[in-house]
Amino acid sequence: MAPRIEVAAHAGVCYGVERALDLAEKAAGTAPAPVRTLGPLIHNPLVVAELAERGVTLAESLDGADAGSVVIRAHGVVPEVIEDARARGLSVIDATCPYVKRVHAAAERLVSQGFQLIVVGEGGHPEVEGIMGHADGRARVVSRPEDLDGIELERRVGVVVQTTQTLDALDAVVAELLRRADEVHVVNTICSATQERQAAARELAARADVMVVVGGRNSGNTRRLAQICAESGTATHHIESADELRTAWFTDAALIGVTAGASTPAAHIERAVAAIERLSGASDGTR
């Protein structure tokens, strides 16, 4: 009997990424040229290459965008970057995800209320760097409870979280803060799309014989989906493109599960599913 392919109930691009892509693609035909994104628009190398083919190229810094328009990436930036871009005479298209802007607002509010800010997330990640820029220098980044050991905590601590983090990671840090601080104010800024994709991936991985996770290797939320699937005990393969798929992965599999990060367009998922069908002889009844 041929294996079956099932795509997770929630998989692929979220609202913020779709909005950023729409803004960038529209800018290619309407905004002052040249049009450049400030850093990768999203964490998906294939999408970045596709945008370049449409005329939206990449600048790693404002020094590489000396004229025309600059698109602010979905992850957001520190406020000074946008001010600097406008001061240089650049046309600014702000594609920051609205959910990321919600984190910026929460960080500003907590700091203004006198809380020492803890950001639960990946140090050095573009989204986290942007959040830090809205905290008036009063934020520290942690990814796990042990990271708090080197921080001198104040009496009142506020917490926000990178939108693509897991609820387990947030809960673990908050539990340690509650043990060590007098007052802890938590704003759960994990995006609902992230939670939906993680829950759907976990549910499907528990039933599947093998999982394929589609998306950029530089995408934190995609890597976390792969981690969640692997932790279920199911053989898990993280790919960026369908060319990476291997027939041997699907030997003796009755159910092949597919999920994708929030920066993975539907077309990329479709290409992966079609390739899995060819390699495994599977049928897809849930696409």
Rank of each mutant, 00 (worst) to 15 (best):
R102I: 01
V120I: 15
G114C: 13
E122F: 00
Y99F: 15
S112R: 15
V111M: 11
A106E: 15
A95S: 12
V103Q: 00
V103C: 00
E108G: 11
L110F: 09
E122G: 00
T96M: 06
G123H: 11
G114Q: 08
L110H: 03
T96A: 05
P126M: 02
G123M: 03
A107W: 01
C97G: 01
E122Q: 13
F115G: 04
R102Q: 13
Q113L: 14
G124F: 09
H125A: 08
Y99R: 12
Q113G: 11
C97M: 05
P126A: 09
E108P: 00
E122I: 05
A105F: 02
I118G: 09
V119C: 10
V103M: 03
P98Q: 05
K101C: 02
S112E: 14
Q116H: 06
H104M: 06
P126S: 09
F115N: 07
V100F: 02
P126I: 01
P98F: 05
P98A: 10
C97F: 00
P98K: 06
Q116E: 14
G121W: 09
P126F: 02
V100R: 03
H125Q: 10
E108L: 01
G123W: 05
K101S: 05
L117I: 06
R102E: 08
A107L: 12
Y99I: 07
A107K: 09
L110M: 13
G124H: 06
G124D: 14
V120G: 05
A105E: 11
V119E: 07
G121L: 08
A106D: 07
I118C: 14
H125C: 06
A107F: 08
G124K: 10
E122N: 02
A106H: 07
E108C: 02
E108A: 15
G124Y: 05
I118W: 13
L110Q: 13
G124L: 03
R102M: 00
Q116W: 02
V120Y: 06
G121P: 06
V100P: 06
H125L: 01
H104P: 12
V103L: 02
A95L: 04
P98G: 04
T96V: 10
Q113Y: 03
K101I: 06
G124I: 06
G124S: 12
T96H: 11
V111G: 01
A106C: 01
H104C: 09
Q113N: 13
L110N: 10
S112A: 15
A106I: 06
T96G: 04
G124Q: 12
V111F: 15
C97Q: 02
F115S: 09
H104W: 07
A95C: 12
T96N: 06
G123T: 09
K101E: 12
F115L: 05
R102W: 00
Y99P: 00
L117N: 08
I118A: 07
V103E: 08
G121K: 09
S112K: 15
H125W: 05
A106N: 02
V119T: 06
Q113K: 14
G114E: 11
E122D: 15
R102A: 10
A95N: 11
R109M: 04
V103G: 03
I118M: 15
G123K: 15
S112Q: 15
F115R: 12
R102T: 08
R109Q: 12
Y99W: 12
E122A: 04
E122R: 08
